[in-house]
Design a protein around this nucleic acid. Structure first.
Lengths: 163, 163
DNA sequence: CTAAGTATGTTATAACATAACAAGCCGGAA
DNA sequence: TTCCGGCTTGTTATGTTATAACATACTTAG
């Protein structure tokens, strides 16, 4: 049983990958969009990594597996996943990460560990705070990006233990 | 007298540029760092634009003025300005914008108008909300990026008036 | 003056992203 | 069945953003 940090808590990673793929599969069927081999494999790759991956990094994997070798292949796949809410783009890193709560409407906050690259997806209701702020000036918010960088529990000095 | 939106409110832009430059000048003297011609000019360009500008866009200006023609020139200047707190990087746009409150410690929130490209810098205390969220999982935040995209008052349909 | 540190000039290349068009697949209408 | 229309993929080419690396010049303190 593989165990990785998520939200910096341990869990059965193999299981979470499987169920996320199944959820995506179901969502695609429901929406009448195609969950093709490349798209499925890219989501799987992102889920397994459980960290942000650049498009070219994903592409390298696809290439090795004979699923595509040119940039558009990777970009199309991750774009699809982001559109469908199965993955998110991390602006700060120019990278992509699997969504940890697909299907649920959310305005995610990303906690990016600068040491190990792990990205945790938290939910913080910044929308209301931000909305109030924006309303004062008449700005109409359509979308927000919130990304925090720092150190995850496992990478903080003097804290690596508690295994 | 030139008048531009800032924080989507009108103000004397010429004056704000002048005073921001003066403030930067003073800060550099106080810190013992050099406010060279290129650095000064880049800050001025960003202040005048009052919108996010890409590094290559800044570079094009510098080139026309004989201040430099290669990418590193622009990147070094904007990096300096960001380090000193005179400008910010907008991750979402891969662009840079002059800081509207240099010298004041702040965790800015950017309101990016997708129509006109204007970037307003708001202050929202998301740090505390976020910090609490993160503390639950043991994550230690070092830096946060908050960027909202939408429409500024001037670009919202049916609102462009009130001139 | 000169040495140390800082800044700039320049070349080259890395890393990230998309435009544009051809070719294949697949399902439904004729 | 055949054809068509929409979607997906293959491929070439290029555009955009960013930095490594090293040479040169400036600035300032001793």
């Amino acid at each position: 049983m593989t165990s990785h940090p998520t939200g910096f808590a341990r869990h059965d990673h193999g299981l979470c990958v499987t169920s996320a793929l199944a959820a995506a599969d179901a969502a695609c069927k429901a929406r009448g969009v195609q969950f093709t081999a490349v798209r499925r494999r890219v989501l799987e790759i992102l889920l397994e990594a459980h960290a942000a991956m650049g498009a070219y990094e994903v592409l390298a994997r696809l290439d090795r597996e004979g699923l595509g070798s040119q940039p558009p292949v990777a970009y199309r796949a991750v774009s699809f996943l982001v559109e469908q809410g199965f993955a998110h783009r991390i602006e700060r890193l120019n990278a992509f990460v699997a969504c940890s709560a697909p299907g649920v409407a959310h305005s995610p906050v990303f906690l990016i560990c600068r040491a190990c690259g792990t990205v945790a997806e938290a939910e913080a209701d910044l929308g209301s705070t931000l909305g109030a702020e924006a309303a004062l000036s008449g700005f109409m918010i359509e979308q927000t990006v919130v990304e925090a960088q720092g150190l995850c529990p496992a990478c903080q000095p003097g804290l690596e233990g508690a295994t």
